[in-house]
Write a protein that binds this DNA or RNA. Structure first.
Lengths: 337, 337
DNA sequence: CCATACTATGTAACCGGTTACAGCGAAGGA
DNA sequence: TCCTTCGCTGTAACCGGTTACATAGTATGG
């Protein structure tokens, strides 16, 4: 026996489908006893409204599509958690779709959402603006997170340049001068901005025009490899600033392997403040990931209900989190939670 | 101008809607030039099929609902990653919904999925079987993960009892006898099973009928608090087995605060093997979280297409991961990745 | 040359809701 | 008593697709 439909309920309660709809959706213009009969019939038949049908006729799905790049661990968890919290508070569901590096994938992911969601949150640090805009559905509101977006599209950005600058100044402030940067994958927006911020800051505050830059790809292994290469090359360095925490962790492992002490001989810093960073006492720039996710949903739902200034672009400054990997060794890192 | 519909495309291509549908869905019975005209028209109008309408008429949403309890960090990320990978490989989307401890929440979450998804993956270690089954939609296939389920419902379970037993035997094997257990929240299935396994194993292999059990709630702070209470109480213990890794981490922090050395004076072990555990050299039972997520989706989609043995219950044994917190201190933990 | 089979296409019903509009009975006013 | 108004209910169109069935056109065989 298939699930009961609204017509089954109508038959059972001996009313029309319109009355059933009205009764169950809390309309005013219905007699109390009719409503009671309908509710009883629905209960008896175990009726549950068909959300798909409803969203078709109401042109409102009460769902928002989330398109993310291939999900790097904790980052993913955090942003989805933030979105989910906000979305469920506002009565929305989250429809997930991750796209891989391939552009066709992205197109497919975006298209598959049409007619299923009321709006989109898109995060695509690896696509360029033109490609992205060409593939965005025209009539679906969207909020872009960390994307190379054209102006006029609602967007949330992390101030990577400013964050890198803050970190460089912190390192300089602890007396380090020979700072190496390990980059993220080429083509990645965050990676490029962090590198640019690093270069800018080194020129401006250290007077270094051509600082040491090692290629990486955001993975722990890349951080370790870059560090081993650095050591093998005999470069003299007193700090490594990795473009994200995972690589910074890789750096630390490689340094320990090589018997280099952190932070005495070489300081290490990362970017993101993933949960592991705290336990490893890693100095990093905290990106409020969950907060950004929540905000993206807030912005989107506001836009859907006509509130707020949709086109605004917001820049979120990460916050410096100083821990033991860049400070003089004083017994133990702080135990703040 | 609203999004183009299939009728707009039909008008543009001067054919019927049926032909448009056939042309775009790769049906055989359509002339090549007709198909070309349709494709051109669709392209010109920027037509994207309305997934909601399609799933209504086909009674197939190509989406699976995921209902999770309030998401504890890494666990969540891992299981969703596993599901997403498998789901997108099979052409399914994931519709997320987290329910909080409240039962009404759970009911609401389950109902809201009807008509939006083809099946459900439900994880609810805090609800009891009767409640759960009463609230499961009747005609929606579902796979339960770590639930108190009636038999006959497809389910995936972690062998918590066996895992706890393995850990106890490991600790006994390293010479520890006075082992305390820090439990998870009461009412939680995993917590109860792990406690039961601990008690069973202590009786059977250590001859201890009433081992020391400290209440916890799976949080880092609870682990620390339990440990402080233990120390303050002057209990003599040479190992702490926490019901999950977060609490084990809390234990380690509290022990360090108190100047107790790990593992020399007290060994510490956890359960789950969250990513952080490796970096902290925490001995733990590895639960293949992502694998279970992927498997849940596989089971569900198989069931949807009539393959596989739907009603089977599978038990997944976690694997002992020995690290430095339970082994004699020999300079440094292994650096395996 | 006509019956038959097969192919390409169109028409309209259907999926399961919502809702504009029409209709009907009762109450109120003249 | 009749007309208007109002409150409740039902009918049917609609959302945007898919698809069973009918039909027209063409090729095939006797």
């Amino acid at each position: 026996m298939a699930q009961a439909t609204i017509r089954d309920v109508a038959r059972e309660a001996e009313v029309s489908v319109a009355s059933v709809s009205r009764a169950l959706n809390g309309a005013e213009n219905i007699r109390a006893d009719t409503r009671a009969r309908v509710v009883a019939a629905a209960e008896k038949l175990g009726y549950v409204p068909h959300a798909g049908a409803r969203s078709l006729s109401m042109a409102r799905a009460h769902a928002i599509g989330v398109v993310l790049p291939d999900l790097h661990g904790e980052f993913f968890s955090e942003i989805v958690r933030g979105m989910d919290k906000e979305a469920s508070a506002r009565g929305f569901h989250l429809l997930l779709s991750n796209m891989h590096a391939d552009l066709n994938d992205a197109v497919h992911a975006l298209r598959a959402m049409r007619g299923r969601v009321d709006g989109l949150v898109v995060m695509a640090p690896h696509l360029d603006a033109a490609e992205l805009m060409r593939n965005m559905p025209q009539n679906v509101p969207a909020v872009l997170v960390n994307c190379r977006a054209d102006q006029g599209t609602p967007a949330l950005l992390v101030d990577n340049v400013g964050g890198a600058d803050t970190m460089v100044r912190h390192l300089l402030g602890t007396g380090r001068r020979a700072i190496a940067h390990v980059t993220g994958p080429s083509g990645n927006l965050d990676a490029e901005e962090r590198l640019a911020g690093f270069r800018l800051s080194m020129r401006r505050h250290a007077g270094v025009d051509d600082p040491l830059v090692l290629p990486g790809d955001f993975s722990e292994e890349a951080g370790a490899a870059a560090t081993r290469a650095l050591i093998a090359g005999g470069q003299r360095v007193d700090a490594i600033f990795a473009a994200n925490d995972m690589m910074a962790i890789g750096c630390m492992l490689a340094l320990r392997e090589a018997g280099v002490s952190v932070p005495e001989q070489i300081a290490v810093a990362g970017f993101d403040d993933i949960p592991v960073a705290r336990y490893l006492h890693l100095t990093t720039m905290r990106v409020p990931i969950a907060g950004i996710g929540a905000l993206a949903v807030t912005r989107l739902t506001d836009q859907l209900s006509g509130r707020g200034n949709p086109a605004a672009t917001e820049l979120h400054a990460p916050e410096l989190e100083v821990r033991a990997t860049t400070t003089a060794h004083k017994k133990e890192g702080r135990t703040r939670t």
